[in-house]
């Protein structure tokens, strides 16, 4: 499945945040992921309401020194990878 501009990614059933701040970890049935800063920001924006387009726009604002096309591509790749692992649904 392709991530589309209008997709509304969210954490999949059985996946949730644990811990606080820097140590925030995403916990799912078979393990846990401690994400580096950017990845964490992306995933925190996945609330099931924001569309992928809106997520990218917020990322562009937060990382205004980076190339927008790169931001979009990297975010899409990251979310598709997590979709394959059933950590994210859209």
């Amino acid at each position: 499945m392709e991530l589309e501009s209008s997709s509304q990614p969210r954490l999949a059933a059985g996946c949730r945040w644990a811990g606080e701040g820097e140590n925030r970890t995403i916990v799912f049935p078979e393990g846990a992921l401690r994400l580096e800063q950017t990845a964490r920001v992306v995933l925190e924006l996945c609330d099931g309401k924001r569309t992928f387009d809106e997520i990218v726009r917020e990322l562009e604002r937060a990382y205004d020194k980076s190339d927008p096309a790169t931001i979009r591509r990297d975010a899409a790749r990251f979310l598709e990878r997590l979709w394959q692992k059933k950590v994210v649904e859209f």
């Binding site: 999949a12 059933a13 059985g14 996946c15 799912f28 049935p29």
Partner: peptide
């Protein structure tokens, strides 16, 4: 029955 809830299911 499990499937009707929101609990993740393996």
């Amino acid at each position: 029955m499990i499937r009707q809830s929101k609990v993740a299911f393996t």
